[in-house]
């Protein structure tokens, strides 16, 4: 029982961070209808920014949240304006040119990182890296002993806070509403006077900033190397499929499911199989629940309204 609960907690904490990665991807997918296969590489870039700020200026990785995401926001807007947008207008036989384009961008970013920063594994050895909270500290006569890593918990809480902020932005502000309108119906949004190109740029920027934020949250508990990006790109799209394409709520639930599932596979099947478990979830979702968690939510909402 105790290892299971511990696994579950680790899975939820991991899932919270995964959700943040997934939200960025699903937002871009919803508005632009393209898969951003360079998502993880953007996270890698943000992690290197955080890493260098830490090793040169001794800046705490969590404080980099105020630096790396805004930088990546600008970077993402630039990518959208100068590379992805021109391709949307190009006539070609294959409809997936933008997807292949993002792969190309990812290759360049990863290779440049390898050249400039070498492929060494790096980490930010913060002083609180090994601190943990124990259940017995709070509840003296607890029947089981559970521990909670300090940095994991902080990262999780910040991820939740960022998600709430994003929800507020999308639901309450004018820009957020325009973004949602663009995602729902491009032509109608344009007729209502929404600057669709601007919204696309902002969305790509926000998506990049979200994944940059998760990079900042991941680095105290993880390590960093240039090829890490592709791994997180895969995670991001598994979450996107699991959650339902373009659904933010779905991405949150999808992230949590994936986190728990991976953590359970790692404990009970073996570390090496955790990535395979990820894809089992993915293929199962494609076969049995093609609309993702979002389709379940929608069905539930419809039943309620009847």
């Amino acid at each position: 029982m105790e290892p299971f609960l511990q696994t579950l907690i680790a899975g939820i904490l991991l899932g919270g961070l995964y959700s943040l990665i997934g939200i960025g991807m699903t937002l871009i997918l919803g508005v632009m209808k393209i898969i951003n296969l360079t998502h993880g590489q953007l996270m890698m870039v943000a992690m290197y920014i955080t890493f260098w700020l830490f090793s040169i200026f001794k800046l705490d990785p969590y404080l980099s949240l105020f630096i790396a995401p805004p930088l990546l926001f600008l970077f993402g807007m630039g990518l959208q304006k100068f590379l992805i947008d021109p391709v949307l207008k190009v006539e070609s036989i294959l409809p997936h040119n933008q997807v292949i384009l993002t792969v190309g961008i990812g290759m360049v970013l990863q290779n440049l990182a390898t050249i400039f920063f070498t492929s060494d594994y790096r980490s930010t050895p913060v002083s609180y890296a090994t601190d943990a909270w124990y259940l017995s500290d709070v509840w003296k006569t607890a029947p089981i002993e559970l521990s909670l890593s300090f940095s994991w918990t902080i990262s999780f809480c910040i991820a939740v806070a960022i998600t709430i902020m994003l929800w507020y932005f999308l639901a309450k502000t004018d820009t957020g509403k325009s973004i949602r309108a663009t995602a729902q119906d491009l032509d109608a949004a344009m007729l209502m006077g929404v600057n669709v190109n601007m919204m696309r740029m902002i969305t790509f920027g926000i998506g990049s900033a979200m994944v940059a934020a998760s990079g900042c949250l991941f680095i105290p508990i993880y390590y960093l190397f240039p090829a890490l990006g592709s791994q997180f790109t895969l995670i991001a799209f598994v979450i996107t499929i699991l959650g339902g394409m373009g659904s933010t709520m779905g991405a949150i639930i999808g992230g949590l499911i994936l986190g728990v599932f991976e953590s359970v596979t790692a404990t009970y099947v073996g570390m090496g199989w955790a990535p395979a478990g990820r894809f089992v979830v993915f293929i199962a979702a494609l076969v049995f629940l093609p609309g993702g968690v979002a389709s379940l939510l929608k069905r539930h909402a419809i039943r309620k309204s009847k």
Binding site: V87, V90, G104, I105, M107, L112, T114, I115
Partner: peptide
């Protein structure tokens, strides 16, 4: 060492 960068750039140029 930068051959992947150049491949990536080639891919981007070709697509555009």
């Amino acid at each position: 060492v930068a051959y992947q960068t150049l491949f990536g750039i080639l891919l981007i140029v070709i697509i555009i």
